[in-house]
C-alpha cells in the first residue's frame, strides 16, 4: 500500500498543517513516511508545495517522481493545476475552488475550474464557505484534508485523532472547530462522489 500526495497552495494557507496532521495519523498507523517541505524564499505569497509519501514499505526518495502521485490536495485552484505532471493517470485532485489572486495576470477562475474538471478524478469544493460554517475560514485547509481523506489509506478515526493532537496546544475550541471542518469536508466529498 502507498499514497504519494502533493499538497499545494499559496504561502500562508497552511499546507504544512495538512502535512503535519497526516504525518501524525500515519505514524499512529506505523507507516513509513517522507515529507519534503518548501522553506525560505518562496514562502510569502508564493506557490508552495510539499511532497508527502506514505507506505507500508521503506520509502527511498523524498521526492515523488513525475506521473506517480496518487493525489493532489490543493488549497488553491490554480496551484492544483501546477502539479499535474506529477499526477498518475488514475490519481485524484481534491482542491479548493476559492482563488488567491495576488498577481495582476491571474486567469479567469472559471477557466481554471474548467481545466481541473478535465482531470479524470477531481473534487472541487468551496472550502472557505464550509470552513466559515464550521467556525473560521482559517480551517479551510482542514476542510480540504477532510475532503481528500477518503483517498488516503488511513482510517478516518486516526485522522480525527491526529487533528486533536495537532491542535491540542491551541485549546479545546480550536480542536473542536478543526474536527468539525475535517468531518464537514469528508462528508461533502463523499456526497459528491
Amino acid at each position: 500500500m502507498k499514497s504519494d500526495i502533493i499538497i499545494s497552495g499559496v504561502g500562508g494557507q497552511g499546507i504544512l498543517s495538512i502535512a503535519g496532521i497526516t504525518g501524525l495519523a500515519a505514524l499512529a498507523n506505523n507507516m513509513y513516511l517522507k515529507q519534503s517541505e518548501v522553506h525560505g524564499m518562496s514562502q510569502r505569497g508564493g506557490d508552495v508545495q510539499s511532497h508527502f509519501r506514505l507506505s507500508d514499505k521503506p520509502i527511498a526518495s523524498d521526492l515523488i517522481p513525475f506521473g506517480k502521485a496518487d493525489l493532489i490536495i490543493s488549497i488553491e485552484p490554480m496551484e492544483a493545476l501546477r502539479y499535474l505532471p506529477w499526477l498518475s493517470n488514475s490519481g485524484w485532485v481534491v482542491t479548493n475552488s476559492v482563488p488567491v489572486i495576488n498577481i495582476p495576470n491571474y486567469p479567469e477562475v472559471d477557466r481554471i475550474i474548467g481545466e481541473i474538471k478535465k482531470v479524470k478524478n477531481s473534487i472541487i469544493l468551496d472550502a472557505d464557505t464550509v470552513a466559515r460554517e464550521a467556525g473560521s475560514v482559517k480551517a479551510g485547509n482542514v476542510v480540504i484534508l477532510g475532503a481528500a481523506s477518503p483517498h488516503i489509506d488511513i482510517p478516518f478515526s486516526d485522522m480525527e485523532q491526529a487533528v486533536e493532537t495537532f491542535f491540542k496546544k491551541k485549546g479545546n475550541d480550536i480542536v473542536a472547530l478543526n474536527l468539525k471542518a475535517l468531518r464537514a469536508g469528508r462528508k461533502l466529498s463523499q456526497n459528491l462522489k
Binding site: 518562496s42 506521473g67 490554480m78 491571474y106
Partner: peptide, 16 residues
C-alpha cells in the same frame, strides 16, 4: 518515466 498532464498555460507564476 510516465508524466502526468502538461501544466496548462493558464498557470501563472507567483513571483515573490
Amino acid at each position: 518515466t510516465p508524466r502526468g498532464k502538461h501544466v496548462s498555460p493558464l498557470v501563472k507564476n507567483r513571483p515573490p
